[in-house]
Amino acid sequence: MKKILVTGALGQIGTELVVKLREQYGVDNIIATNRSRYEGHPVVEGGTFELLDVTDEKGVFEIAKKYDVDTIIHMAALLSATAEKNPKLAWDINMGGLMNTLEVARELNCKFFTPSSIGAFGPTSPKDNTPQDTIQRPTTMYGVNKVSGELLCDYYYHKFGVDTRGVRFPGLISYAQAPGGGTTDYAVHIYYDALKLGKYTSYIAKGTYMDMMYMPDAVKAIIDLMEADPSKLKHRNAFNVTAMSFDPEEIAAEIKKHIPTFTIDYDVDPVRQTIADSWPNSIDPTAAKEEWGFSVEYDLARMTEDMLAKLKEKGI
């Protein structure tokens, strides 16, 4: 990767990804794009930034051509809970945007990354240690988008030779950017409320396990996969990756080690709970480890310590 275009660059993943890419590949070699511009945002102020709506294929092509990019990292998407509220908009953005960016990658011979999700699994997928290759019959629009996206990226690789790559991310936890409407967002909100209020009301029920990952490990996974030897990639577009699996009580217990008076209660959101119940409790990342050396640095304890420290630094 020498010249990289990132869509959805002001989102939860994009914010930390762009900062890391600029550090690693040079500020002038990263073209950050987003459909909206937020003045003062570190991605906007820290290097090249362009407004871009990924549903506009011509716009995607013009920016990619203008900067002579060789890699597209496509992060723009509508997330799970938000997608359920407006499924047609989710399809238009998630699938229309993916199709447009894949077409540009094909036309300009770019390497291509887009993330899938544990949302690509469904209630009939194995719940524990979900295999890399298994039944995928999601019951959410977001999940349908993600399965369709996995297949579409495979198609562009086999049909046109586009070097497509991707992972199935679990819930992602970050201190740098607020989450954007995902089912696993409670695992970010809980840290904010722990520091601000000393308590948290969870919209996810006690005993609901979901896979999670700290954002530095997610960013590392993207870069490691994109730098991997393509001859070793058998799956390419949908590698299971994970760092930990916990329920709300377990993350609360870890926070209590740092804030002993912290308490948690529950007011379950039926929409997001139904989505969570359709997802795996834990997934098997063996293929990612074997094919490109996937690894993580943060478990629940280390992540909690770092999250609380970083949020305090931000004045939370």
Rank of each mutant, 00 (worst) to 15 (best):
M1R: 08
K3V: 14
I4G: 10
L10M: 13
I13W: 11
E16Y: 10
K20N: 14
E23R: 05
N29Q: 10
V44D: 06
E45Y: 02
G47V: 02
D53V: 05
D56P: 07
F61E: 13
K66E: 15
L78H: 11
A81W: 01
T82W: 02
T82C: 11
E84R: 04
K85V: 14
P87M: 00
A90M: 00
N94R: 01
G96E: 09
M99D: 11
N100G: 02
C110G: 00
T114L: 04
S116G: 05
S117P: 05
G122R: 03
D128T: 03
P131M: 08
Q132H: 03
P138C: 12
Y142I: 00
V144R: 12
S148V: 08
H158A: 11
K159M: 04
V162L: 07
R165H: 01
F169V: 06
P170R: 01
A176K: 13
A176R: 10
A176W: 11
T183I: 09
D185T: 05
A187L: 14
L195H: 02
L197M: 04
Y200L: 09
Y203G: 03
T208H: 06
M210A: 12
D211W: 12
D217F: 02
V219L: 03
K220V: 00
I223V: 04
L225G: 06
A228V: 03
K232G: 09
F239S: 10
V241M: 10
E249K: 15
A253W: 06
P260D: 09
T261V: 15
T263A: 10
I264Y: 15
D265S: 15
D265W: 14
V268L: 06
T274K: 15
I283K: 05
D284G: 02
P285F: 01
A287G: 12
F294L: 11
S295H: 12
S295T: 12
D299C: 08
R302Y: 02
T304E: 09
L308F: 11
